[in-house]
């Protein structure tokens, strides 16, 4: 999966509310009908990148297993970024579909 797409998925699952890293991976896995598997090796670099861009903020909280863990929360900038990426994504997929239909 391209890293840009992963960032978009992360932002998308965070739209519903703050989640920690593991939960983000799980949510993507479940929502994709268990097709997409997000591994540590790509998830954490992507999260750091998103943090750097300022699209999410991180806060320490307590997990369901009662352990200290970092929760990621979408920022206003992140929300804007997500909308822009979704729009772009839609446009590109529409275009590809159009070609596939006619060709």
């Amino acid at each position: 999966m391209p890293s840009g797409a992963l960032a978009m998925l992360v932002l998308r699952v965070l739209r519903a509310g703050p989640l920690h890293g593991y939960a983000i991976a799980q949510r993507i896995h479940v929502l994709s009908n268990e097709v997409l598997e997000v591994e540590e090796g790509s998830l954490y670099p992507a999260l750091q990148k998103i943090l750097l861009k300022g699209w999410v903020s991180a806060e320490w909280g307590i997990s369901e297993t009662n352990r200290k863990v970092r929760f990621y929360k979408l920022t206003a900038a992140g929300r804007k970024q997500l909308e822009a990426e979704l729009r772009d994504y839609d446009r590109v997929t529409e275009a590809i579909k159009a070609i596939l239909r006619t060709a």
Partner: peptide, 29 residues
């Protein structure tokens, strides 16, 4: 954070050998 991730994975039943090199993964992030 990554240690927590592994714990959860282990809980979910993923075998340890599937984990990558921890230091390398951290460095990459």
């Amino acid at each position: 954070e990554m240690a927590f991730h592994r714990e959860m994975l282990e809980r979910g039943g993923t075998p340890r050998k599937h984990f990558g090199n921890e230091t390398l993964l951290q460095e990459r992030a």
